[in-house]
Design a protein around this nucleic acid. Sequence first.
DNA 1: CTTAAAAATTAAGATAGTTTAAGACCACCT
DNA 2: AGGTGGTCTTAAACTATCTTAATTTTTAAG
Lengths: 189, 189
Amino acid sequence: MSDYQIFKNIQKHISLTELDKEHLLTLLKVKNVLKKEFVLKQGQTCKKIYFVEYGSLRAFNIDDEGKESTLMFAVKDWWITDMNCFVNKKPALLSIEALENSKIIELDFHLLEEVYQKLPKFERFFRILFQNAYIREQQRALYNISYKTEERYWQFVEKYPEISEKVTQKQIASYLGVTPEFLSALKNK
Amino acid sequence: MSDYQIFKNIQKHISLTELDKEHLLTLLKVKNVLKKEFVLKQGQTCKKIYFVEYGSLRAFNIDDEGKESTLMFAVKDWWITDMNCFVNKKPALLSIEALENSKIIELDFHLLEEVYQKLPKFERFFRILFQNAYIREQQRALYNISYKTEERYWQFVEKYPEISEKVTQKQIASYLGVTPEFLSALKNK
DNA sequence: CTTAAAAATTAAGATAGTTTAAGACCACCT
DNA sequence: AGGTGGTCTTAAACTATCTTAATTTTTAAG
């Protein structure tokens, strides 16, 4: 029951008593989603942040011309949401779909605010979580502007080997911001 | 004395007593830097996070071939550092230089950890700060992979008009990840 | 097992972006 | 006041990436 992955994840940065865990369990919603099922759809308001117990999700945007851009993948032990939507109540730019049958845990925005009040150490936990997320995105921004696609592809494969194996090449292309045709040509030269 | 911009910045998200401010003042280091002066140099260890009281800074990387990439600009009321270096003690990928004579405030990593202990509401402040930084970078990542350079240029000008006026076109080009020649051609068509 | 749909590959012609080089302009130094 | 160096512009030749479209391969559903 309380050997959820999410507790291990939280305890990487703060410690939890059995009481904390019990309290949390009343606030979290565990959900099974099927492959191709949508957890969030572009345009909606996103009231929840998601944690992947097992399986994998993908967050992506589709623009007016139908072009798909993958913003991030989330595998086991990762958090994911459309942050601007979650925090600032903007319509979601992102859709989030399951890449395989997955077990996820939802945490509602208002319940999270409650958690911050009742268990202030969660401010610390999410401070560290967002700090790390910021570091990753800062690095990604630097790589995006300073390296060429070919280098970025190999860096991605090296950095996220499990993801590279799990997702299609088309999805990796849309994460890199190039066409699948171009990525295919890159690889096979 | 205590009408520093940094206090206004902090009070956007948490409230500060006079005592808090006094305590903080003992930990912060106010510094004047001259135009072109370096606040941080690539390769060093970066032990501090910086806040801009007035003036402007630029964080950039120079790769092996000498190509310069601007990761971010910081104007009045902004925080800036090489986060991966600051948090994880990695050698700085970034240099940070003053674009004009500026007044900045330094906060040392270890003192910040102390602040978290003594004034836990600062966990909240930095949680919100990093949360917002993450949102910005997430958006930037999406724009980088989904829009073309021309659109990104005009979005940048629209989103950061003060910065666009203050910095050179060459620096904007290096923020967008294109050559100054190409940006010049884009604008004048 | 079969078949339809999606993914991956290949290739040709178009567009986006780089490189190099030269000249104009402007700020700054002494 | 003149010289120096950085920025901006323009252009030509080159490389990276896109678009389209046809072909093959893989995947998933009945």
